[in-house]
Write a protein that binds this DNA or RNA. Structure first.
Length: 98
DNA sequence: TTTGCGGCAGGCC
DNA sequence: CGGCCTGCCGCAA
């Protein structure tokens, strides 16, 4: 099982309306400081529609980047009921922890 | 608040 | 086969 696949599975555990962070995801698969690696995996995500890579944000609450554009990412999150202001998550209680 | 450097899997050379 | 480069971050200064 490749690491990236483990990451995708973890990501699938995140329920609609919730999000997680690159750091949490990294630890969840056994990496301590692999946040950037996680981001790269998401960017090269072979299943962009199956894997909700838009539900992953930065630890400081900012939405972060997105292969299809941050605007798209922000819209999708809004559609799921997540409040975003200036690319920043408003209520931290929507953050899902493993 | 902004800037810079660290750490990591994958893919390319 | 080994090493270099990239990329949706994180955190300390």
């Amino acid at each position: 099982m490749k690491l990236e696949h483990k990451v995708y599975e973890k990501l699938l555990q995140v329920p609609k309306g919730k999000v997680t962070t690159y750091g949490e995801l990294a630890k969840a698969v056994g990496l301590k400081n692999g946040q950037r690696a996680i981001g790269r995996m998401m960017n090269k995500n072979p299943f962009p529609v199956i894997v909700p890579c838009h539900r992953v944000i930065m630890s400081d609450g900012k939405v972060g980047g997105y292969a299809w554009g941050e605007k798209v990412k922000t819209n999708m999150l809004s559609r799921e009921g997540i409040e975003i202001k200036k690319g920043r998550i408003q209520n931290a209680d929507v953050i899902f922890r493993f």
